[in-house]
Design a protein around this nucleic acid. Structure first.
Length: 845
RNA sequence: GGGCAAGUGGUGGAAUGGUAUACACGAAGGACUUAAAAUCCUUUGGCCGAAAGGCCUUGAGGGUUCAAUUCCCUCCUUGCCCACCA
C-alpha cells in the first residue's frame, strides 16, 4: 500500500502515542554507582554506558512553534537519537523560558493574566513539539515561571548577594521609554531596545547589578578551552569582554592638587600628547572651568550633551564636538603644559573617562584637533613618509615606526617603546601599566511584573535585608495592575509590598523590581539534571554526572548574551562547590536561519511557513528530512516547496520498497556473487558515510544523500539478473539486509517512518531508537579491484580498473599501453611518474 | 574603522591536496495510461565536433605543486558581529 497522507497521520500519531505512553525517552542517571529504575522499553541504564547530554536552547512560549524551532530541535533530535543508538545514556530535555514581556503585553491587550496566557501558550507549544516526534524526556519538563523554578533563581541571587556579587547602585542606566524598564548593555542594539526597537535613553536610577566583571579574566581565558565552539562565537565574546592592555598616566592639573588619570593603549606616543580630553560627565569638568572665561561655554556643552540620548549621539555624522575647559594639565614625561578640553567622543563609561590626545597617531584625536585647531606633533616616523609635517597629514599615522621627538626613546621601534616607556613611567611614578575591560556589570532589575521577584526587603532601620532562604520563594502575586505605564506593577500591590523586616520585625517594604529573564536562562541546563528537586537547586552528584552539556544547539543571536551569562553562572556555581565543570557547554552548534525568497522568515515580513500546515500535508518526517537535507545545519536554509516534495517522494519510495520487497526469514548466502558484493559494498559505504557524517560535525545533508545512494543501489540490485550460484532466498537475504540498514540509518532523521517500517519487518522487540547502530564491515569496502585514473602533466587522460594495492611496476605498463595516454606521451621523455595507491598514476613529460 | 564567515551548474549543495559538479530539485525526452496524476527509464556545466576526441570552467589576478575548490599573497563582492572602547 502506498504511503498516503492518511498513513502519515496514522503512523505518526501511533508512534507519538507509543513514545509518550511508554515514556520511552525517560532517562535515569547513575548516581553514586547506583542505577535507578528504568522502563523496560527504554535503554537499560547501566553504569558502563557513557552519558550524553544534548540540549537545544529552550523556547519562549509565544504560542506556536515556528520553522526556526523546528530546525533547531530537529538537529538536536537527530543527534540525541543517534547517540541513543550508539549506546549512550542520553539526556534530552525540554522546557520553556516563560517569563518576559509578551505575556504582559497580552495581558494589556486581551485582559488575560500573564500566567494564564503563558500556560496556554506552553500547552500549544508542547503539542507542536510532540507532533514533530522529538525524543524528549518529558518527565523533566520545566517552565521558568513556575515558583518551583524561580525559587532557585532567588536562591542564586541571595548567594550572589552574600558573596558581594549582587549589589545595588545608582548610576546612569539604559532606559526604554516604550517598555518602561531598564535594559542591560547587552540588550541595547544600535542605541535601541533589543525587543521593541525603540530608542533607548539614559536615566539615573538605583538598580541591581551582578558583578560579572569579577569573572572577566576567566570568562576570557576559558574561551580557549572551548575547542568545539564556532570560532566566530568565541571571537564575539572576546570582543565583548574586550581586554585592552596599556597604561594609566597621571596628568597633574596646573595650579591645583587634582590629577587626571588617562588610560591609553599607546604609551609609546606619550611625547606626542598635545592636549587632554575629558568626557562631559567627568567630575573635574566643571571644577576646571569655574572662574575662567570658558565657564559658560563648558556648562552649555555639558548640558546639551546630557540632554542628548546615547542613540542620537551615536547616530549622525559623528563630528567631534567639544570645548576648552580653561584648565591646563602637565604632561608628566616632559613637563609640558597642555590644554584640557571636554569632548563628546570621550566616554565616561570606558577607561577613566579621560584621554591624552595624540592627534598625529590616533584618527579620532586627529579629527578633533583639526576641527578645533589644536596643535599636533609627530612622535612616530612613517617609514613611507619621513619628515612629513603634521599640517601636511591627511589622516593619523597609526602603523609601526621608530620614535622621534621622544627624548631618550628616539629611534626605538614603537612596539618596543610601549613596554619601555610604561616601565620607565611606572618607575618614576608618572603612570602604571594597566588593563581595562569593555565588559560592565550586568544590570538585572526590571520594572516589570512577569518575572522572578528580587528577594530583597528594605527596612528603615536595617537597610537592605535579604529574604531568608526559608521564606523562598517570594511568590509573584496572582493579581497586579498591569498597564504598561508608571513603573513596577508590583509596587501597586500592597499585600506584596508590605512585609515585616526579617531582622528587626518592623514594617518594611519588598523590592518590587523583577529579574531580567536572562537570569532564568543562565542556569536552566543545570536544573534539567534534577528537575524536581524541592530540597535543593539540584543534586550535586546528578549535576556532576550530566554536566557539561555535551552538545548545545541554538541560534547565533545568543552568541553573546545568553552564552556569556550561562558561563558566568556556571563559574559562580562552581565556586560555590555545586558544579564540577568550568564551562557549561562542551560543543556548540549554531544553526542557520530559515529563509524564504532570500529573506529571514518572520512574522513582520509576513513570509512564515507554518510547520503545522506542512505536517498536515507531508508529515513531520518529511519536514524533518527536508530541513536536514537542504543545507548543512550551520548554513542558512532556503525554504523550497519543490525540495520538500522531493523528500516526500523519497520516503514513499523507501516505504513502498520495504512493503513490496522485504520478505522476512531468508537465510544469508555462504558466498556472494558479484552483484551481491556490490550491494554489500554500497551498504557498508552508506554505513561509513552516515556514521562519519554524524561524528564529524553533523553533516546531515551528506549523510542523507549517502542513504539515497544506497537506495539507488538497492533498486539496481533488484533489477539485476539472478546469479546462477544463488537461490532466490539467498538473494532475498541480501536485499533484506540492505533494507534493514536503510531503515536504521534513516531512523534518527525520520523516526516515525522508521519505527513503522521496522515493525513491518517483523522486528517488534523494542523501539528502533535503541536498536544498535549498524556495524561497519570494513572488509566489504575492500574490493579486489579499484578504478584509478592516469594523468599526464596533471590532466586526466585515462581511467583503469586495476588490482587493489598494485604498485608502480604493475601500473606503469598498463597505463602506458593505453592509447589515450600514449597520445599525450608518445615522442616525449618521461621525467617522472607519481603513483598514489588505488587512486592515480601521474606522468610528467 | 576592527573582527569573523562565505563566494562552485538553471537551483539547494558535494568534494580538506589526487577523476570538480556526489545527492537532490528543476528542465527536456521516453515508457505505462483513453487521458491526467503517480511511478519507472534516459539526458542534463560551457564551447568546438557527425563521432572519436579536444579546449575551457569553482568571484578576479598571481604564486607553491607532477596535481589546487582545497595551501600562500593581492584584490573584488556579499553576509554577520563589534564600534568615537582611547
Amino acid at each position: 500500500m502506498p504511503y498516503t497522507t492518511n498513513d502519515i497521520k496514522r503512523v505518526e500519531e501511533k508512534w507519538q502515542k507509543y513514545w509518550k505512553e511508554n515514556r520511552v525517552f525517560k532517562v535515569s542517571e547513575v548516581s553514586k554507582g547506583k542505577t535507578s529504575e528504568t522502563l523496560a522499553t527504554s535503554a537499560t541504564s547501566d553504569s558502563s554506558r557513557p552519558k550524553y547530554y544534548v540540549l537545544e536552547m529552550f523556547p519562549y512560549p509565544s504560542g506556536k512553534i515556528h520553522m526556526g524551532h523546528v530546525r533547531n530541535y530537529t538537529i538536536a533530535d537527530v543527534i540525541a537519537r543517534y547517540k541513543m543508538m550508539r549506546g549512550f545514556n542520553v539526556l534530552h530535555p525540554m522546557g520553556y523560558d516563560a517569563f518576559g514581556q509578551p505575556a504582559e503585553n497580552a495581558a494589556i491587550k486581551r485582559g488575560v493574566s500573564p500566567s494564564e496566557w503563558t500556560y496556554k501558550c506552553i500547552d500549544d507549544m508542547r503539542a507542536g513539539l510532540r507532533k514533530m516526534g522529538f525524543s524528549y524526556d518529558w518527565d523533566r519538563e520545566l517552565a521558568t515561571c513556575d515558583d518551583t523554578y524561580y525559587k532557585w533563581n532567588q536562591w542564586i541571587f541571595l548567594k550572589m548577594f552574600e558573596k558581594g556579587l549582587a549589589y545595588k547602585k545608582g548610576s546612569p542606566v539604559n532606559w526604554c521609554p516604550s517598555c518602561e524598564t531598564t535594559l542591560a548593555n547587552e540588550e541595547v542594539i544600535d542605541g535601541a531596545c533589543w525587543r521593541c526597537k525603540n530608542q533607548v535613553v539614559q536615566k539615573d536610577l538605583e538598580q541591581w547589578y551582578l558583578k560579572i566583571t569579577e569573572y572577566s579574566e576567566t570568562l576570557l581565558g576559558d574561551l580557549q578551552k572551548l575547542d568545539n565552539w564556532p570560532s566566530r562565537v568565541k571571537a564575539m565574546q572576546e570582543n565583548w569582554i574586550g581586554k585592552s592592555f596599556g597604561a594609566d598616566i597621571f596628568f597633574k592639573v596646573k595650579g591645583s592638587e587634582d590629577v587626571i588619570t588617562v588610560f591609553t593603549t599607546r604609551p609609546d606616543t606619550i611625547f606626542g600628547a598635545t592636549y587632554v580630553t575629558l568626557a562631559p560627565e567627568h567630575p573635574l569638568v566643571m571644577k576646571l572651568a569655574k572662574g575662567t572665561a570658558q565657564e559658560k561655554a563648558v556648562a552649555a556643552f555639558v548640558e546639551k550633551r546630557a540632554n542628548t540620548s546615547k542613540s542620537l549621539r551615536m547616530s549622525g555624522d559623528q563630528r567631534k564636538e567639544g570645548v576648552f575647559t580653561g584648565g591646563y594639565a602637565v604632561n608628566p614625561v616632559n613637563g609640558e603644559e597642555i590644554p584640557i578640553w571636554v569632548g563628546d567622543y570621550v566616554l565616561m563609561e570606558y577607561g577613566t573617562g579621560a584621554i591624552m590626545a595624540v592627534p598625529t597617531h590616533d584618527q579620532r584625536d586627529f579629527e578633533f584637533a583639526r576641527e578645533h585647531g589644536l596643535p599636533m606633533r609627530i612622535v612616530i616616523q612613517d617609514p613611507a613618509n619621513p619628515g612629513i609635517a603634521p599640517d601636511k597629514m591627511d589622516k593619523a599615522f597609526v602603523d609601526s615606526g621608530a620614535l622621534v621627538n621622544s627624548q631618550q626613546f628616539d629611534g626605538t621601534p614603537n612596539e618596543e617603546a610601549k613596554q619601555k616607556i610604561s616601565a620607565w613611567m611606572e618607575e618614576n611614578k608618572m603612570g602604571r601599566v594597566s588593563v581595562h575591560w569593555r565588559l560592565r556589570d550586568w544590570l538585572i532589575s526590571r520594572q516589570r511584573y512577569w518575572g522572578a521577584p528580587i528577594p530583597m526587603i528594605y527596612c528603615e532601620k536595617c537597610g537592605i535585608v535579604p529574604v531568608p532562604e526559608k521564606d523562598l520563594p517570594v511568590r509573584l502575586p496572582k493579581e497586579a495592575p498591569i498597564t504598561g505605564e508608571g513603573g513596577s506593577p508590583l509596587a501597586k500591590v500592597d499585600d506584596f509590598v508590605k512585609v515585616k523586616c526579617p531582622q528587626c520585625g518592623h514594617d518594611a517594604r519588598r523590592e518590587t523590581d523583577t529579574m531580567a529573564t536572562f537570569f532564568d536562562s543562565s542556569w536552566y541546563f543545570l536544573r534539567y539534571c534534577d528537575a524536581h528537586n524541592d530540597k535543593a537547586i539540584f543534586d550535586k552528584d546528578k549535576a556532576a554526572y550530566w554536566m557539561p552539556v555535551d552538545q548545545y544547539i541554538g541560534g547565533i543571536e545568543h552568541a553573546i548574551l545568553h552564552l556569556l551569562y550561562s558561563r558566568f553562572f556556571t563559574k559562580f556555581l562552581k565556586d560555590l562547590g555545586l558544579v564540577t565543570c568550568d564551562e557549561p557547554f562542551d560543543r556548540l552548534l549554531t544553526q542557520g536561519m530559515v529563509l524564504k525568497e532570500g529573506e529571514v522568515m518572520s512574522k513582520s515580513k509576513g513570509n512564515v511557513v507554518d510547520p503545522d500546515e506542512v505536517i498536515a500535508k507531508y508529515g513531520a518526517d518529511t519536514l524533518r528530512m527536508f530541513i536536514l537535507f537542504a543545507a548543512p545545519p550551520e548554513d542558512e536554509l532556503e525554504w523550497n516547496p519543490a525540495g520538500l516534495e522531493g523528500n516526500w517522494r523519497f520516503l514513499n519510495r523507501v516505504w513502498n520498497t520495504v512493503e513490496e520487497q522485504y520478505v522476512p526469514g531468508a537465510a544469508d548466502p555462504a558466498v556472494l556473487d558479484d552483484e551481491g558484493k556490490k550491494l554489500e559494498f554500497e551498504r557498508n559505504l552508506a554505513v561509513k558515510r552516515v556514521t562519519d557524517g554524524m561524528e564529524g560535525g553533523f553533516k546531515f545533508n551528506t549523510a542523507i544523500s549517502a542513504v539515497m545512494v544506497l537506495m539507488n543501489a538497492v533498486d539496481r540490485y533488484r533489477n539485476s539478473p539472478l546469479a546462477p550460484n544463488l537461490t532466490i532466498l539467498e538473494r532475498q537475504a541480501l536485499l533484506n539486509r540492505a533494507l534493514e540498514t536503510v531503515v536504521l540509518l534513516l531512523s534518527p532523521f525520520v523516526p516515525h517512518v522508521a519505527e513503522e517500517l521496522w515493525q513491518k519487518m517483523g522486528k517488534t522487540e523494542k523501539t528502533v531508537a535503541f536498536i544498535p547502530w549498524p556495524e561497519l564491515d570494513e572488509s566489504a569496502l575492500k574490493t579486489d579491484t579499484v578504478t584509478i585514473v592516469a594523468q599526464v602533466n596533471g590532466k586526466v587522460r585515462g581511467e583503469f580498473t586495476v588490482p587493489r594495492d598494485a604498485d608502480e611496476s604493475v601500473l606503469r605498463p598498463i597505463v602506458l599501453a593505453d592509447a589515450g595516454v600514449q597520445r599525450h606521451v608518445a615522442g616525449k621523455a618521461i621525467r617522472k611518474v607519481i603513483v598514489v595507491k588505488n587512486k592515480l598514476v601521474s606522468i610528467v613529460v
